[in-house]
Design a protein around this nucleic acid. Structure first.
Length: 490
RNA sequence: GGUCACGUGGCCGAGCGGUUAGGCACCGGUCUGCAAAACCGGCUACAGCGGUUCGAAUCCGCUCGUGACCUCCA
């Protein structure tokens, strides 16, 4: 089987994945800033890297997956000066900042669980790593790559760039950055507008603050990721992921900080997922198209025609490649929902197929195709396309138009279990006939048996009536040669 | 304004120089008392204009459109 290749943003090409210390693999992904509800934008990176995590484990690597919770500050870019998102929310709601953080962290976890996203190995919080962050600031100051200004500490980008390449990840050129920066009035603490904060002095109104030798303040946003990735994955690790919106400045700054602090480049493969749009528009609070995951699953947003289950959302996201933009619309979601139902139905059919003496279908070819897709930079849409080729084969096998011997049948079952359940993380909803109660089963069976009798007597008026009424109630009735099948639709 | 992506059939979405993507929808057909499901078949596109090439959705240029970022610390 050929090797896994990953598109590395750093080199802008696909590279064969070779971990630094096999069989171990380290992965760090930028998690949410917990100052608001989990929304659609959170789902994409979570699902993208969940599949990476699952596949690496499936390949046999011992993976440590670190995804942080940003619970320290970060100024609003468009709101009141000097106020950060969490502090502002806390003041408005008259709560402790950590109450806000706890509330939204719990909410985030709840939605991630619904999406069947595996928990990371470690989920560190920025607020729990203040001493380490202060240490890294000192380290960078000692190396002469930062300076103190009015109680804040800034990274000296120009100096760093003299011996390093600042902008190598995002493709920016420092001269351009300096020349395109707008003229800003206000605090001119920085030597150069391209410099970024490592430690920021808190003003009087700032309620999230920690003591340091420079000032009472808080760490610069970019710092937490450098610190926590180093702490839990080492000075060098394999994969760093996040959304494309984080490419610049966040990840660029991380590279610079870590390089200075650790004396070497810390990340081998940089992965970035693309963004989500809603009906072709970017998602934004002011545009009225900001959909929270809770609303998505309940169908309670005005733009939604119906509720979409978490597994549908997950499948929908996986039907596009993670590096392509993805547009959410009712039409597209419903198409995915139907396709997914068909996929799951085939998997249930697969369990009932009887083995033949011979095979007329190449299961190994299907398997190879599937893994080739996965190995080609996690190309889940291609993988899913192959899975649908298999669906056709399964259905043909069920009707006897295609044959599978015992070995191939088992191989096919294993393949779908591994790919669909373990790697793509798609869970078959348990609504079916099970879990609805024994009594209900018996009542429905009774009605359908009466219907069979009516059909035998050619009393089609009665048989149609039973079926139509049940359909109205949300049941799906399928006649079989030797009886019937029914299910309760969600 | 700058940098970087992207623009594919009714809708979504793969593709990265030559071969059917796939899903959904739609139209025929098989099966069925009629349905549903399933299967078979059909519809077969690549924003526009140039260029490179024996050959381009795929490479290059321009135009138009969309998106991300451009540090008053997401």
């Amino acid at each position: 089987m050929q090797k896994l290749s990953i598109y590395n943003t750093l080199s802008r090409r696909k590279e064969v994945f070779e971990p630094l210390n096999p069989p171990f693999a380290g992965m760090y992904v930028c998690g949410p800033t917990v100052y608001g509800d989990a929304h659609l934008g959170h789902a994409r990176p979570a699902i993208t890297f969940d599949v990476v995590f699952r596949y690496l484990k499936e390949m046999g690597y011992k993976v440590r997956y670190v995804r942080n919770i940003t619970d320290v500050g970060h100024l609003e870019n468009d709101a009141d000066q000097g106020e950060d998102k969490i502090a502002k929310k806390a003041r408005l709601e008259e709560l402790e900042p950590m109450e806000i953080v706890q509330y939204f962290t719990d909410a985030y976890h709840r939605e991630m669980d619904k999406l069947n996203i595996l928990k990371p190995s470690i989920e560190p919080r920025a607020s729990g790593h203040i001493p380490e962050q202060i240490e890294m600031v000192e380290n960078i100051l000692d190396k002469g790559m930062a300076y103190i200004s009015n109680g804040s500490v800034y990274f000296d980008v120009e100096k760093y760039n003299a011996s390093n390449n600042y902008g190598k990840l995002s493709g920016r050129v420092i001269e351009d950055l300096m020349s395109t920066t707008r003229e800003l009035d206000g605090q001119n603490e920085k030597r150069n507008p391209v410099d970024f904060a490592l430690w920021k002095k808190a003003d009087a109104s700032h309620i999230m603050r920690w003591k340091s030798k420079w000032s009472d303040g808080f760490p610069g946003w970019h710092l937490e990721c450098s610190v926590m990735s180093t702490k839990y994955l080492g000075e060098q690790f394999d994969i760093h992921g996040g959304g494309m919106d984080l490419l610049f400045p966040h990840h660029e700054c991380e590279i610079a900080q870590s390089k200075v602090a650790n004396g070497k480049d810390s990340v081998k493969y940089w992965m970035h997922n693309n963004m989500i749009t809603i009906n072709g528009q970017k998602m934004g609070k002011s545009l009225g198209n900001f959909i929270r995951l809770e609303e998505m699953f309940a169908g309670s947003h005005p733009l939604l025609e119906k509720a979409y289950s978490p597994v549908t959302v997950r499948f929908f996201i996986l039907q596009a490649h993670y590096r392509s933009p993805l547009d959410f619309s009712n039409e597209a979601l419903q198409a995915s929902e139907k396709g997914l139902t068909r996929l799951f139905a085939a998997m249930q059919t697969l369990e009932k197929i009887q083995a033949s003496e011979t095979s007329t279908f190449d299961v190994q070819k299907l398997k190879t195709d599937c893994y080739e897709a996965l190995n080609d930079d996690f190309n889940t849409p291609i993988l899913i396309a192959h899975l649908f080729d298999g669906v056709r084969a399964i259905n043909q096998a069920a009707t006897g138009d295609l044959k599978l011997n015992a070995t191939d049948l088992q191989a096919l079952k294993d393949l779908y279990k591994t790919l669909v359940l373990a790697i793509l993380g798609l869970e078959i909803p348990q609504s079916e006939t099970t879990g609805t109660g024994e009594l209900l089963n018996e009542v429905v069976n009774l009605l359908l048996n009466l219907r069979v009798d009516a059909k035998v007597n050619k009393d089609f008026a009665t048989s149609d009536k039973i079926r139509n009424e049940l359909t109205k109630l949300g049941f799906e009735i399928k006649d079989k040669k030797d009886g019937f099948e029914w299910s309760l639709k969600s």
